[in-house]
């Protein structure tokens, strides 16, 4: 047969394909904004930290027990700041993980639809409170309250900052955990109920293990929030670098220190100024480690239904 010309209604429509391509590029570029920002931040952190480590040895940075960048005899022991970050985060997680998980179990497995629909917006409201408000709440309400029990507690302390930070993180953990538990198929719950399990047994033996990868993701997010939280610790835990794991001490965290320096006492380019990049890089690596842990936990405990 001879090659017949393609009928008009089957002809290749250039305009349609160009439109599709434009949309594809638009979508790609918005994805690139996020990726490029991350890459840019890491690049700056590493570049500026290299300047810092050109002047301070990495051994001193990791082993020195003092953090005094502004003294005439400066010391740069990151553990001093890291101890504050780790202690306040640990306190926060001791509050947020049990409370957040229990709340999620209640909302997902026990609460009636009406209770759930009322409680969830309130929890979201809690997540929307600016952290500076939480900071002053810790300083002016929780610390005085704790002083009733423990009168020697200093005005600035890691305990009250950590506790309030824990409350702040609860809605993040409960919301993600609840989503994960609600995603567990009803057939699995029915299987357990059909064996004669009570609601609590179904929740703890079946739903929680089945949702474990989601719970792990929630906890990791909680850890990252705690480690990166700035205003609460800056306001309520004090700005005094202090190598301590004692919750009743005051101490500066990495974030609180960065705020303090960034407020502008130090000239740009000085070693003291460069410290904030090294401290920032440490923080970044810390959250990266937790996120990677979360990633592998999720992969390891992923349940397919």
């Amino acid at each position: 047969m001879s090659q017949a010309p393609i009928a008009g209604r089957l002809a290749y429509r250039r305009s349609r394909h160009i439109r599709e391509q434009i949309i594809e590029w638009l979508l790609l570029s918005s994805a690139l904004v996020a990726v490029a920002t991350t890459v840019g931040i890491v690049f700056i952190l590493v570049k500026e930290s290299l300047v810092f480590f050109g002047q301070v040895s990495i051994i001193d940075f990791l082993t020195d027990s003092q953090w005094t960048p502004l003294f005439s005899d400066p010391h740069f022991g990151i553990w001093v700041l890291l101890s504050g970050t780790l202690t306040s985060s640990a306190i926060a997680l001791c509050v947020a993980i049990p409370v957040g998980t229990t709340l999620a179990i209640y909302l997902s497995e026990f609460a009636s639809a009406r209770v759930r629909e009322t409680a969830k917006p309130i929890l979201e409201l809690l997540a929307g409170i600016p952290t500076i408000v939480f900071g002053y709440f810790a300083l002016f309400f929780v610390t005085p309250l704790l002083k009733i029990i423990y009168p020697e507690l200093p005005g600035f302390n890691l305990l009250s900052a950590g506790l309030v930070m824990g409350v702040m993180i609860v809605p993040y953990i409960s919301s993600i955990s609840e989503d994960a538990m609600r995603a567990v198929p009803m057939s699995l719950r029915e299987g357990a109920y059909a064996m004669g399990a009570t609601r609590l047994q179904v929740a703890l033996n079946v739903v929680v293990p089945a949702a474990f990868s989601g719970l792990a993701a929630a906890y990791i997010l909680g850890i990252s929030r705690a480690v990166g939280e700035t205003m609460i610790v800056a306001v309520a835990a004090g700005m005094q670098p202090n190598l301590t794991f004692n919750p009743t001490d005051q101490a500066a965290t990495i974030t609180a220190y960065i705020v303090q320096v960034a407020k502008g006492d130090l000239p740009h380019g000085s070693v003291g100024y460069q410290t904030i990049f090294a401290a920032g890089l440490t923080l970044f690596l810390l959250t990266l480690v937790f996120n990677l842990m979360g990633y592998f936990l999720r992969k390891r405990f992923r349940e397919e239904y």
């Binding site: 699995l188 029915e190 299987g191 059909a194 033996n205 293990p209």
Partner: peptide, 13 residues
Amino acid sequence: LSMVFQKPNPFPK
């Protein structure tokens, strides 16, 4: 009275 369901639903155990 035990029940076996339409789709196998083993517990994550």
